Simulated assay, not measured.
Amino acid sequence: MKILCWNTNEAVWNHWNQVTRSDLTLVRAKNLSETYQLLKNAAEDFAYCFIYLEDENFSEQVEQVVTLHSQYPENKVIVFPNKASQAAALRLLSVGINGQCQPFIGRQQLELVLSVVDSGEIWGGKAFIENLIKQTAAVLETEVRDVELDDLSERENKVAHLVAQGLSNKEVANNMNVTERTVKAHLTAIFKKTSAKDRLSLAMLVQKSHKVH
């Protein structure tokens, strides 16, 4: 299994090679052009795309990642920012980036990250996602349509509100005493009815609905 790594930092690159499993092959791209070329030639060969966000041109690189993901949406992307930025985190996660981690992540934590992302969840931790939703809902716009939640069934509404609290599919399933498959089915219906494209957008919509009512 291959991982495409857009990485300009030698120390971080060497660290990634040390903490990844032996069955994972890291393929390095040192700039955006090389990244596009590798994806153009064999996007399906890469299970993940790791992207190191450097301090220099940080905001510009964030937008480049957004554009890259929009062109290759099937590839799972995990970003490794060298500095903390809540605005950047929201921007990336809201468009479907699968997670963000510290550049010098540990071996066991990286395994956990990949496991969570493989299950269809966003990595960042429950507290991170919940705080991100709470602190940015009032000041950042989302791309969802201005719709009400009235079209949702009672159980769909409950799922939406639990997701808005930052709960994972497994946690929602435990809370409602149903299977994760049932939760995923509810989320599929919710996204279709509300036009929310991801969990963060749905959370924003739930909070906006509360303000209206």
Score class of each variant (00 low, 15 high):
Trp16Asp: 05
Val139Lys: 04
Leu140Ser: 09
Ile78Met: 07
Ala11Gly: 11
Leu53Gln: 08
Lys2Gln: 03
Thr35Phe: 06
Ala42Asn: 04
Val95Phe: 02
Ile51Met: 01
Ile51Ala: 03
Glu121Phe: 10
Leu200Asp: 01
Ala173Gly: 09
Ala88Leu: 03
Asn14Met: 12
Thr8Val: 13
Ser85Leu: 03
Lys126Trp: 12
Tyr72Ala: 00
Glu171Phe: 07
Asn31Tyr: 10
Tyr52Trp: 15
Ala160His: 00
Arg91Phe: 05
Asn57Trp: 08
Glu60Met: 08
Ile129Met: 13
Glu54Gly: 15
Val62Asn: 04
Glu111Gln: 15
Leu90Met: 04
Gln64Arg: 05
Ala42Lys: 03
Glu180Tyr: 14
Leu110Trp: 14
Thr8Ala: 12
Ala29Met: 00
Leu205Arg: 00
Ile97Val: 10
Ser119Thr: 13
Thr142Met: 06
Ser22Leu: 13
Thr179Phe: 12
Asn169Ile: 15
Gln108Val: 12
Ala11Trp: 15
Thr136Asp: 03
Arg91Pro: 08
Val65Tyr: 00
Thr179Asp: 14
Phe191Met: 07
Val79Gln: 01
Glu60Tyr: 08
Cys49Thr: 02
Gln61Asn: 13
Thr67Pro: 03
Glu111Val: 15
Leu167Met: 10
Ala196Pro: 04
Leu132Glu: 04
Val66Gly: 01
Trp16Gly: 07
Lys134Gln: 09
Lys170Tyr: 15
Thr25Ile: 12
Asn14Cys: 14
Val178Lys: 11
Ala196Ile: 05
Ile105Ser: 06
Lys184Pro: 09
Glu44Tyr: 00
Leu162Trp: 01
Gln102Thr: 14
Leu114Trp: 07
Ile122Tyr: 10
Arg199Asn: 11
Ala11Glu: 15
Asn9Lys: 14
Glu74Ser: 02
Ala138His: 06
Pro73Thr: 01
Gln18Ile: 11
Asn41Ser: 10
Pro73Asn: 04
Ile133Leu: 07
Arg21Val: 06
Gln165Ala: 12
Thr35Val: 03
Ala196Leu: 05
Ile97Pro: 00
Val77Thr: 09
Lys211Tyr: 00
Arg91Cys: 01
Leu53Ser: 03
